[in-house]
Amino acid sequence: MQPDSHAAQQQAFEAALWQQDPPAGLRAPVMAEVAQRFAVYRNNVQHSLTRALAARFAVVEQLVGPTFFTAMARVHIAQDPPQSPVLLGWGATFADFLDGFAPVAHLPFLGDVARLEYARGRAYHAADAAPVAADALAVADPATLRLGLHPSVQLFTSPHPALQIWQAHQTGATRRPLRAGPDHALIGRAPDFSIVTAPLDQDTYTVLRALAAGDRLGDATTHADPTAALTLLLRHGLITTIDTGVSP
């Protein structure tokens, strides 16, 4: 690469975005002000990426406060910047980052709150699929029935009361005492595009895990009653295909 080539200039410009001094070769009407002008780009990069994270992880930002969030985001952005211009997919590693970030070690649930928020964002952008009719299960034999769930369906579990903490930070939430974890939830997108975040008891979570993994209904419900799980899926339009296990 030639030292004054376009590629070399861009490499120097990018490197300077993460450092103190502007790159060589910039001009301004008053040369002493080049650094302040270059700082606009550095601020734009930091600010726009921080806001993209904050939009995705709004409750994490509430929990640590915007000033701390901005400082924490700066560390994450430097370690793991986005690789794609499609920022709606960015943030997949933020929860793992929080799990290992020593300054938030006193908030052991924070990573799971981030996982919940990321899962909700994935549900928002997941592929479309039409739900089956509510009475479509009536004729099927549970011993052979397999359900296809909507692409937005994700099952959330945390040893911490992460779902309750997330719920307490929603607009209009009523104050109630936290129960100890674990917390479980069904996340998905209803046909009206609202994002479902439904709390689950242990049994319903277990049934849904098995159904989502493709188990036959009869196998998934060996140890638990499937009524709650099926009611929840049907109410939110999250069953999109039915395989009766019988050849047509």
């Binding site: 861009q10 490499q11 990018e14 780009y41 734009n44 990069v45 726009s48 690789q83 211009p85 920022l87």
Partner: peptide
């Protein structure tokens, strides 16, 4: 403008020199 040189997506519209090469 440009927004990426290599792997990282910089999420800003960055400036270019105006030369025969660019």
């Amino acid at each position: 403008a440009w927004s990426s040189h290599g792997a990282a997506w910089l999420n800003d519209l960055l400036p270019l020199p105006y030369t025969p090469e660019t």
